[in-house]
Design a protein around this nucleic acid. Structure first.
Lengths: 141, 141
DNA sequence: ACTTTCTCGACTAAAAGAGTCGAGAAATTT
DNA sequence: AAATTTCTCGACTCTTTTAGTCGAGAAAGT
């Protein structure tokens, strides 16, 4: 509803990396399998994610992807902001014409969109990847 | 960002009707002109909106669309909910597979989406169409 | 009758989203 | 060095969604 399939894949891929922190680079194929994401598509997505500075990759036999920060230091907001490449939220999306909005700064729609956006990102910014890593059910003694 | 062009048209059409409350039915062509919305497209949109019980129309010479409630009694939330026809938010959009999510009710993603959705609709539900009607700049004395 | 304006369904076009593919480059192993 | 593994890059296709159009018909008013 708020995120495209692609962006959810990206988020889940990062969560998968977070789950495996400390075990060395994780192969795209492993992530794809664990998260049931189409392999070739995931390659593209992870390639993009490298540009964010949040993850990096290594090639070759022991290659794979890994996080550049601790899961608790990566917010969902930062990931989403990177993926969406901040759109011109300054522009009132609902005004008849960008240049002709007679109410400019006080446009009621603009204010509404801004408030909604802030509410959403408040939540995204206070949620970290660590918060999204599922807790394994405690092993039976 | 959150609403399609179409749904923004719908909201703006309702706002336009609100602006003209008390002046009798408003023709689609007038709304289209005032809000710079493609006429034929707006016809479709308003046709759909009739199903919401928020607006109704009358045909013929003095025909046009009009609100069935006061602008302050129509929330943005109710309009959007109608336009989007509530999607299965109960389903976790981010789990690998709808039926195979191992964390079911406690899935961290599901909780996140729910919270975001609630935050958004809290704002939408406390904003009425009246709030969106622009205040005419006070006439010079 | 005649005009106006909504009404209905089908239809087309454009854009975004999802997913695929082949060939190449860096690491590692043998 | 040769073979293997795995990431890398750009282009490409397929599908779905969104946007927008159109013609003919039905109610309301003059």
């Amino acid at each position: 509803m708020f995120l495209t399939q692609r962006n959810q894949y990206a988020l889940r891929a990062i969560v998968e990396l977070a789950r495996r922190v400390g075990t060395g680079p994780v192969k795209v194929s492993e992530i794809a399998k664990a998260q049931a994401i189409p392999l070739r598509f995931l390659e593209v997505i992870l390639g993009q994610l490298k540009g964010s500075g949040l993850v990096d990759a290594k090639r070759g036999y022991y290659g794979g992807y890994f996080l550049l920060r601790q899961p608790e230091d990566i917010t969902v907001g930062s990931v989403i902001r990177f993926l969406q490449g901040d759109p011109d939220l300054k522009e009132c999306q609902s005004c008849i014409s960008k240049m002709q909005c007679p109410f400019a700064k006080d446009c009621a729609f603009a204010s509404l969109w801004t408030r909604v956006n802030e509410a959403v990102f408040t939540i995204f910014d206070e949620t970290t990847i660590k918060d999204l890593v599922p807790h394994e059910p405690a092993a039976r003694p």
